[in-house]
Deep mutational scan, measured.
Amino acid sequence: EPREEEAEKYIKRANGDYDKAQELAKKDGNEEIAEAIKEYKKR
């Protein structure tokens, strides 16, 4: 799923820090991806 791939990219950029990844996504205006990262975190 493209959303998950995007989320993974942010998580990698944030060195595995989900909260930081979420912030990066929000900064880029990717609210949807920020949500996907939140879902990811719950797994």
Score class of each variant (00 low, 15 high):
Glu39Asp: 08
Lys27Ile: 12
Ala34Val: 14
Ile33Glu: 03
Ile33Val: 12
Lys26Ala: 09
Ile33Pro: 01
Glu23Lys: 06
Glu8Leu: 15
Arg13Asp: 07
Arg13Leu: 14
Asn15Leu: 08
Ala34Ile: 13
Asp19Gly: 06
Lys42Ser: 11
Asp17Ile: 02
Asn30Leu: 13
Leu24Arg: 04
Arg43Trp: 10
Asp19Ser: 06
Lys41Val: 06
Lys26Leu: 15
Leu24Tyr: 08
Lys9Ser: 11
Gln22Ser: 09
Lys12Asp: 06
Lys41Glu: 05
Glu31Ile: 13
Lys20Pro: 00
Arg43Tyr: 09
Lys9Phe: 11
Leu24Gln: 08
Lys41Ala: 13
Gly29Asp: 05
Arg3His: 13
Ala14Ser: 04
Arg3Asp: 12
Ala14Glu: 02
Arg13Ile: 09
Ala7Gly: 03
Lys42His: 10
Glu5Pro: 08
Asp28Asn: 04
Asn15Lys: 09
Lys26Met: 15
Glu8Asn: 07
Ala25Leu: 01
Glu31Thr: 11
Arg3Ile: 15
Lys41Gly: 06
Ile11Val: 06
Ala21Glu: 00
Gly16Pro: 00
Ala36Asn: 05
Glu5Asp: 12
Ile11Leu: 12
Ile37His: 00
Lys38Ala: 13
Ala36Ile: 15
Lys38Ile: 10
Lys26Asp: 04
Lys12His: 09
Glu5Met: 12
Glu32Tyr: 10
Pro2Ala: 14
Asp17Pro: 01
Gln22Thr: 09
Ala36Asp: 05
Tyr10Met: 02
Glu23Arg: 07
Tyr40Trp: 09
Glu5Gln: 12
Gly29Cys: 00
Gln22Lys: 05
Glu5His: 10
Ala25Gln: 00
Glu39Met: 10
Asp17Cys: 04
Glu35Asn: 10
Lys26His: 09
Ala36Gln: 11
Glu6Asn: 07
Lys42Met: 11
Ala21Thr: 01
Tyr40Phe: 10
Ala21Asn: 00
Arg3Leu: 15
Tyr10Thr: 01
Ala34Trp: 06
Ala7Phe: 11
Arg43Gly: 05
Lys26Arg: 14
Lys9Trp: 15
Glu4Phe: 15
Pro2Met: 14
Ile11Ser: 01
Asn15Pro: 01
Tyr10Phe: 03
Arg13His: 06
Ala34Tyr: 07
Lys42Leu: 11
Lys20Ser: 05
Asn15Met: 08
Gly29Met: 05
Pro2Ile: 13
Glu6Val: 08
Ala7Ser: 05
Lys27Thr: 09
Glu4Leu: 14
Ala34Glu: 05
Arg3Trp: 15
Ala14Val: 04
Glu32Gln: 11
Gly29Lys: 05
Tyr40His: 07
Pro2Asn: 14
Lys20Gly: 04
Leu24Ser: 05
Glu39His: 07
Glu6Tyr: 06
Glu8Cys: 15
Lys42Val: 09
Ala25Lys: 01
Gly16Cys: 07
Lys9Ala: 14
Asp17Met: 02
Tyr18Arg: 03
Ala7His: 04
Asp28Met: 04
Lys9Tyr: 14
Ala25Phe: 01
Arg3Pro: 11
Glu4Met: 15
Ile33Tyr: 03
Asn30Asp: 05
Lys41Arg: 10
Tyr10Cys: 02
Glu39Tyr: 08
Glu6Phe: 06
Asn15Thr: 03
Ile37Pro: 00
Glu39Thr: 07
Arg13Asn: 06
Gly16Asp: 03
Tyr10Asp: 01
Lys26Gln: 10
Gly29Thr: 02
Ala14Leu: 02
Asp17Val: 03
Arg43Cys: 06
Glu6Ser: 10
Arg13Pro: 02
Gln22Asn: 04
Asn15Phe: 10
Lys27Ser: 11
Lys20Glu: 06
Lys26Val: 11
Ile33Lys: 02
Ile37Asp: 01
Tyr18Cys: 05
Ala21Val: 01
Lys26Ile: 15
Lys20Met: 12
Ala7Leu: 14
Glu5Ile: 14
Glu32Phe: 09
Ala7Ile: 15
Asp19Tyr: 06
Tyr18Ala: 04
Lys12Tyr: 09
Glu31Tyr: 15
Arg43Ala: 08
Glu31Asp: 13
Arg13Thr: 06
Gln22Ala: 13
Lys9Gly: 10
Ile11Arg: 02
Gln22Met: 15
Ala7Cys: 13
Glu5Leu: 14
Glu1Pro: 13
Glu32Thr: 09
Lys27Asp: 09
Asp19Thr: 08
Glu39Leu: 11
Ala7Asp: 02
Ala14Trp: 01
Tyr10His: 00
Ala34Leu: 10
Asp28Thr: 03
Glu32Ile: 09
Ala14Asp: 00
Glu32Asn: 08
Glu23Tyr: 09
Leu24Asn: 05
Lys12Phe: 10
Lys20Asp: 04
Glu31Asn: 12
Glu8Pro: 02
Glu5Lys: 14
Ile33Phe: 03
Lys9Gln: 11
Glu5Gly: 10
Asp28Ser: 04
Glu39Cys: 11
Asp17Tyr: 02
Ala36Met: 15
Lys42Tyr: 11
Asp28Tyr: 05
Lys12Gly: 05
Asn15Trp: 06
Gln22Asp: 03
Lys38Leu: 13
Asp28His: 04
Ile37Tyr: 01
Lys42Phe: 10
Ala7Asn: 02
Ala7Arg: 04
Gly16Ala: 02
Glu1Ile: 14
Tyr40Met: 14
Ala34Gln: 05
Glu6Thr: 12
Ile11Trp: 03
Ala36Tyr: 15
Arg3Cys: 10
Gln22His: 10
Asp19His: 06
Lys41Ser: 08
Ala7Gln: 04
Asn30Arg: 15
Ile37Asn: 00
Glu5Ala: 13
Arg3Ser: 12
Tyr10Gly: 00
Lys38Met: 13
Glu1Tyr: 14
Leu24Ala: 07
Pro2Glu: 13
Glu8Trp: 15
Ala36Thr: 08
Arg43Thr: 07
Lys9Glu: 12
Glu31Met: 13
Lys9Leu: 09
Glu35Tyr: 08
Glu23Cys: 10
Lys42Pro: 04
Ala14Lys: 00
Gly16Lys: 03
Glu32Ala: 12
Tyr18Asp: 01
Gly16Leu: 03
Lys26Gly: 05
Lys9Cys: 14
Tyr40Gly: 02
Glu5Tyr: 12
Glu6Pro: 06
Arg43Asn: 09
Lys38Ser: 08
Lys20Ala: 09
Asn15Gln: 09
Tyr10Ala: 02
Asp17Phe: 02
Arg43Lys: 13
Lys20Leu: 15
Glu39Gln: 11
Lys9Val: 10
Glu8Gln: 12
Ala34Pro: 02
Lys20His: 07
Glu35Gly: 05
Lys20Ile: 12
Lys42Trp: 08
Lys27Val: 08
Tyr40Thr: 04
Pro2Gly: 14
Arg43Ser: 07
Gly16Tyr: 11
Glu1Trp: 14
Glu35Gln: 11
Lys20Tyr: 13
Lys42Arg: 13
Ala7Tyr: 07
Tyr10Lys: 00
Lys41Met: 10
Lys20Thr: 06
Pro2Leu: 14
Glu32Cys: 07
Ile33Asn: 01
Asp19Glu: 11
Asp28Ile: 02
Ile11Thr: 01
Lys20Phe: 11
Tyr10Asn: 00
Ala14Cys: 14
Lys12Trp: 11
Asp28Trp: 03
Ile37Leu: 05
Lys9Arg: 11
Glu6Met: 12
Ile37Arg: 01
Tyr18Val: 05
Ile33His: 02
Ala21Asp: 00
Glu39Trp: 10
Glu4Gln: 12
Glu39Arg: 12
Tyr18Ile: 05
Glu32Arg: 12
Asn30Thr: 03
Ile37Phe: 02
Glu23Gly: 05
Ile33Gly: 03
Glu31Ala: 11
Arg3Asn: 13
Glu5Val: 13
Arg3Tyr: 15
Ala25Ile: 01
Ile37Trp: 00
Leu24Met: 13
Tyr40Ile: 15
Tyr40Arg: 06
Ile11Cys: 05
Arg13Gln: 10
Glu4Ala: 11
Lys26Phe: 11
Glu8Ser: 06
Glu8Ala: 10
Ala36Phe: 15
Asn15Tyr: 08
Gly29Asn: 06
Arg13Gly: 04
Asp19Met: 06
Glu35Lys: 10
Ile37Met: 02
Asn15Glu: 07
Asp19Phe: 06
Ile11His: 00
Tyr10Leu: 02
Lys42Ala: 12
Glu35Ala: 11
Glu8Val: 13
Glu4Tyr: 14
Ala34Thr: 04
Ile33Thr: 07
Glu23Phe: 09
Asp19Arg: 06
Ala25Trp: 01
Gly16Glu: 03
Glu32His: 13
Asn30His: 13
Arg3Met: 15
Ala34His: 04
Ala21Met: 00
Gln22Glu: 12
Ile33Leu: 10
Glu6Trp: 11
Ala7Glu: 04
Lys27Trp: 09
Gly29His: 05
Lys12Glu: 09
Glu31Gly: 08
Ile11Phe: 04
Ala21Phe: 00
Ile11Asn: 02
Arg3Gly: 12
Tyr18Asn: 02
Asn15Val: 04
Arg43Met: 09
Glu35Thr: 08
Ile11Gly: 01
Pro2Arg: 14
Tyr10Pro: 00
Ala14Gln: 02
Glu4Thr: 10
Lys20Gln: 08
Lys41Asp: 03
Asn15Ala: 07
Lys27Arg: 12
Tyr40Cys: 07
Asn30Met: 11
Gly29Ile: 01
Tyr40Pro: 00
Lys41Ile: 07
Glu8Gly: 05
Glu35Ser: 08
Glu39Phe: 07
Lys12Pro: 02
Gly29Ser: 04
Arg3Phe: 15
Tyr18Glu: 02
Ala14Phe: 04
Ala7Met: 13
Lys12Asn: 09
Ile37Val: 04
Asn15Gly: 13
Gly29Leu: 05
Lys41His: 05
Asp19Val: 07
Pro2Val: 13
Lys27Asn: 11
Lys26Ser: 09
Glu4Val: 11
Tyr40Asn: 03
Lys27Phe: 11
